[in-house]
Amino acid sequence: MSFITRGFSGCSRERDERLPPGQTLVQDFPVLSAGPTPEVDTAEWEFTIRTESSVHRWNWDEFTSLAIDDVDTDIHCVTHWSKLGTSWRGVSLDTLFEQVETEQEYVMAHSYGGYTTNVPLDELLDGKAWVAFEFDGEPLEPEHGGPARLLVPHLYFWKSAKWVRGLVMMEQDEPGFWEQNGYHLHGDPWTEERYW
């Protein structure tokens, strides 16, 4: 049906079906920061996963030697913009969690600069999340969260924590920084889980 309409009009005013409700397409990449941009040297950078029983650590060289995925995905910001077909490179959370034993089902992501955000573990696994360090073929710039940021594209983009430095396993879901201050605990753009 839609393609017939398009054929007649030559252009379409129909909604792109990749666009969740309440979102508008942008071509640029708005920068949203809640503090000064942390300057993190990759020589100092470290990523950790802390469980109930142990801490797993990777430095920059170890981290970038892991299997790297190319990720093409749409991203959706709670402030009503979406950007389609963005390209990233990073390490899948499946790869990181191969080495991790945990019974706990919730994750708090922590960033350089102090920001936190919560995500259930099962929403980070099975090809749903990465720690990304390249955007559009270039190293991720500090203003976009470099050296590395979490990338959880199926949730609103505030869950894709910039300057990520580690994940802490939790027994129960607890609100992160913005989730304590009005934003939704979960953040699914397709059901518009924007705020409390």
Binding site: A34, G35, P36, V78, T79, F177, W178, G182
Partner: peptide, 29 residues
């Protein structure tokens, strides 16, 4: 610091977050 997600107020001495403001068309926190 103003961002799309909200406004963050930080201590000028120690940088700690003092307050946050989040606004939508019909609600504010």
């Amino acid at each position: 610091y103003r961002s799309g997600a909200g406004t963050v107020v930080r201590c000028s001495e120690c940088d700690q977050v003092l307050a946050t403001l989040v606004e939508t068309a019909d609600r504010a926190w």
